[in-house]
Design a binder for these strands. Structure first.
Lengths: 205, 205
DNA sequence: TAACAAAAGTTAGTCGCTAACATATGGGGT
DNA sequence: ACCCCATATGTTAGCGACTAACTTTTGTTA
């Protein structure tokens, strides 16, 4: 039995990837034009020139076509690179700002559009919120792994999980405020304010 | 046209409430016995002796039969009663502990069972996570309203929202750890630990 | 070019959920 | 007591997300 693994540059793989992104593009276009709920999977499939089954072979659910967890592993890696003695919330804040800066300047408009769609669609919002549980664990892991050998897996404490979850909550509120201002406020600034609020609760007037 | 509002003690209202809770009881029983996804609405309705339409007249979705936002308004009220100069995270922590104590001793088993179900069912988890956005706003409002007249609505700042969101994240992690320990750990203790982690990030060894 | 395997299509079905319309029943006014 | 109406429930038909089973098409590889 010879190696039957598909070549990375093969026609087959390329076509598959093209189909996938064609579906995704048409889906987003239709969602923005006529709303998420008002767009059927059949409609997206037809627009992309495929059957509805092909849609589900590429995306497990209708919601999945909007989700993009490309960022999570990137941020996780940046957290892992922070010094071990840095306070968890500071570490996440810096890693996040760093990662955000990398994409904010180039993809700002796309990010805003997509985030608006997610926040205004209950089904997508719920998905995003649930995905944060997985992200929380990933970030907590990354916090624990700072300054350890690659194979080493230090304990993930409740404290680390709380701090990862709080950081994610802060980012989410910042995103929400960003969307509410329709992109007028600068997202990095809002993120900074959110993390600041996490560390130093303001007292009354 | 005279007052046609139904009396609170009427037979009609009582029957309706009975039907509602009968549906809910059978639903939970079936979910626990055979799993959430493996239980159809039709099945629940039949078990409760009603048609599937009656189910949806009492609960907007299948998930709603598990959700219980009875606690949120209670906690919100407790937050509102905290002194105005108390730091937001402290205020939420105390209000929450107070509210939790009221129900923990009596409903501990039910709470654990239900929470286990929610955390182990993606659809329910996603719903719960999304509901937290509404709860976050409610708590932020309550924080802002402390020591103000009833009709007065002070501004809800980004900072307050972040703190409310962080507090909810802390509680959620505590609940998750509680479920993971199968109720062996004390929930109030876990909540205290979670809030503590929020305020004083531990440094490395 | 023959043969294999991955990708896409076809079809039929389940389940959550809604709309429209029909029926039953409790509660108030007379 | 009776009638009338509002409200709770039932029936039926249908849409849309998603799955399973099977067939057809199409790169790839020997």
């Amino acid at each position: 039995m010879t190696n039957s693994r598909p070549r990375s540059g093969g026609l087959r793989e390329r076509k598959k990837a093209e189909t996938r992104s064609r579906i995704q593009e048409h889906a987003l276009r239709l969602f923005l034009r006529q709303g998420y709920d008002a767009t059927t999977v059949q409609e997206i499939a037809s627009a992309a020139g495929v059957s509805h089954m092909t849609f589900f072979r590429h995306f497990p659910t209708k919601e999945a076509v909007v989700e993009s967890d490309d960022y999570d592993p990137l941020i996780a890696e940046l957290i892992r690179r922070r010094p071990r003695d840095e306070e968890p919330l500071i570490a996440i804040h810096r890693a996040l700002s760093q990662g955000l800066a990398a994409i904010y300047d180039t993809d700002q408009d796309v990010l805003l559009t997509r985030t608006k769609l997610v926040f205004s669609t209950p089904a997508l919002r719920a998905r995003m919120a649930d995905n944060q549980y997985a992200t929380e664990r990933l970030f907590a892991e990354s916090l624990a792994a700072r300054g350890h050998a690659a194979g080493d897996h230090p304990e993930i404490t409740l404290e680390l999980r709380v701090q990862a979850a709080a950081a994610l909550a802060a980012v989410t509120v910042a995103l929400s405020a960003w969307v509410q201002s329709d992109g007028a406020d600068q997202l990095p600034t809002l993120v900074d304010r959110a993390f600041h609020a996490l560390r130093r609760p303001p007292s009354g007037p």
